[in-house]
Design a binder for these strands. Structure first.
Lengths: 122, 122
DNA sequence: CGGTATCCGGCAGGATACTG
DNA sequence: CAGTATCCTGCCGGATACCG
């Protein structure tokens, strides 16, 4: 498949300052980072399993986002068994490389809005 | 202002697995991480200056995103001078705390789509 | 179980023109 | 310079119903 997913803008080529734009183009949606987070923590998941792990997501949104993540080679989908029908979504290498990014999101989020976030002057 | 911006969903409260959702709610848009990236690299900027640093953004999008980032206490806006009219956007402490996250985005982006990204087997 | 089809609303964001 | 106003588009995503 393509080295450069269509989701990354055409004008965004190589320049160092473009890398954030490129990343934001692939992950900058409501659910994508959360999906990657759950796959990092739980390993490969089935569809409904993933749905259960993500509070508030609708089946359609999950389906669409998984499809795009697959196109962008962040997630890999494989059929595990035919009867009963079982599918598994797992991170690719590229997807696993997102771990530091997701960890940074977790930390920033819980530092500022989490259970033990310190107010202005603790 | 509010500890928990409205943009973070109501059901997202404290639980550790919510921190990614919370962060995605605040930054998970097309331009926000890019804006933070530019402010990190260039320091405080005026409006047009920032517009020039961000390839492809429209004035309206920049205006809207800055307003939201300000509401979420990630960016601070201050009027520098009245004649000529000058404004400056700078990161708050909370905004500066995003640096590791933005750095992770830069690194993932340039590793996978950047000028010197290695193909599958270098 | 693992989705797709359809309908539908909202909002993000582009273009352009205009203001103080 | 630093925006706002308006118009208009497309996509995102929720709800629901249905399929193999």
């Amino acid at each position: 498949m393509s080295e450069r997913p269509d989701r990354i803008p055409e004008w965004c080529r190589g320049e160092e300052w473009c890398s954030v734009t490129a990343t934001a183009s692939l992950l900058g949606r409501k659910w994508k980072p959360v999906i990657v987070d759950r796959l990092l923590k739980n390993g490969a998941c089935g569809f409904s399993e993933l749905e259960g792990l993500i509070n508030g997501i609708s089946g359609k949104a999950l389906s669409n986002n998984l499809k795009e993540l697959e196109e962008d080679e962040i997630v890999n989908r494989s059929v595990i068994s035919e009867r009963p029908y079982r599918v598994e979504y797992a991170l690719t290498d590229r997807g696993r490389d997102l771990e530091p990014l997701i960890v940074a999101m977790r930390e920033w989020g819980s530092a500022h809005f989490g259970p033990d976030s310190k107010k202005d002057n603790p």
